[in-house]
């Protein structure tokens, strides 16, 4: 017993040295909130968005490209002869708010959006298991040129469509992230078999293979899609699906994709996709993003 008592009395002398100093620090900083970084590599998952926004003062130039369908055959060089392009600029006003303007070759659509990071996943002092970003977008079809080409009653405002989206994501591990995207789309004018307001739910995620390469998947189910049984083959609508590989090199993110969607606005890929991925209507595509830091002050 004497030995125990002695140990109790003098043991601490030895232990108070370096190990204790470091552990004293450990307890004081354990309560600090740590935000989750880089749930996804870029602002796009496949065709649609991720919760990520462009950093404050940074300008992201996004070049998106979709080829024709692989099953168009050798005459179309398996789709490589056709191209649908979207050129976009996305600017981070703050680390939470970004604004964007884009041009799509499909239907000569101009589109823009505001994206705001509402909540960020964090742990430490308080815990929040998910990140939430909200997005409000609008798209304007410039094609065809004259309203009268569509119908005598057609007005400019009928060319508009709107998107409201909530992006909810969790980075489960450094290499696995998952995202849910409830999406509302309003089209000012629709075909008689379509609804003006459409609701879709997207889901997707990424698995990191190396520090710079990741596999991605994105799927949107449109709950308001028209009944394909009533429609001719060319008008049947399908859920959009995309499989991709993200390759990141410094300021660039390259995303190589296989998808059945050729439109790059929410209205087009969620509610106007007429190709069926699982029937072989697969388009190769890529998104290339290059970020330029315009403003250095944080």
């Amino acid at each position: 017993m004497k030995k125990i008592v002695l140990l109790l009395l003098f043991g601490p002398c030895v232990a108070t040295a370096q190990d204790d100093l470091l552990s004293e620090l450990g307890t004081s900083s354990a309560e600090e909130t740590v935000y989750t970084l880089a749930t996804f590599k870029g602002t796009r998952l496949g065709n649609g968005h991720t919760i990520e926004t462009t950093g404050a003062g940074a300008l992201d130039f996004l070049f998106e490209h979709r080829f024709g369908a692989i099953n168009d055959g050798i005459y179309e060089m398996f789709g490589l002869d056709a191209a649908y392009v979207r050129l976009g600029l996305d600017y981070g006003i703050t680390n939470k708010l970004s604004v964007s303007i884009n041009r799509n070759s499909r239907d000569k659509t101009m589109d823009g959006y505001l994206k705001y990071r509402l909540l960020r996943q964090h742990k430490g002092g308080t815990n929040l298991p998910v990140s939430v970003t909200i997005l409000a977008g609008a798209a304007y079809k410039l094609s065809p040129k004259n309203n009268a080409d569509i119908s005598p009653e057609f007005k400019n405002i009928d060319r508009m469509a709107y998107t409201g989206q909530m992006l909810i994501a969790r980075k489960f591990t450094p290499s696995f992230s998952f995202q849910l995207m409830p999406t509302l789309i309003h089209k000012n004018i629709v075909e008689e078999y379509e609804k003006n307001d459409q609701f879709a739910l997207g889901m997707g995620g990424r698995i990191k293979l190396t520090k710079s390469v990741a596999l991605t998947m994105e799927y949107y189910h449109n709950f308001s899609a028209p009944d394909n049984d009533q429609l001719p083959e060319t008008r049947k609508q399908y859920d959009s699906f995309a499989l991709g590989i993200d390759i990141e090199t410094g300021g660039h993110v390259f995303q190589l994709l296989m998808t059945n969607a050729i439109g790059l606005t929410e209205r087009a890929f969620v509610a106007e996709t007429t190709d069926n991925f699982f029937a072989g209507d697969i388009h190769l595509g890529f998104n290339v993003s290059r970020t330029f830091q315009l403003k250095r002050d944080k």
Binding site: Q18, L25, L37, A38, G55, A58, R296
Partner: peptide, 30 residues
């Protein structure tokens, strides 16, 4: 005796993308 403990995520860069890469790819702060 001296000890200090530097939280990696608290490094502030002028470029947000650089900060992300620093954490994600180089120091692996997770």
């Amino acid at each position: 005796d001296i000890a200090f403990s530097i939280p990696i995520k608290a490094f502030q860069f002028k470029k947000s993308l650089m900060q992300e890469h620093f954490n994600e790819k180089y120091l692996e702060s997770d």
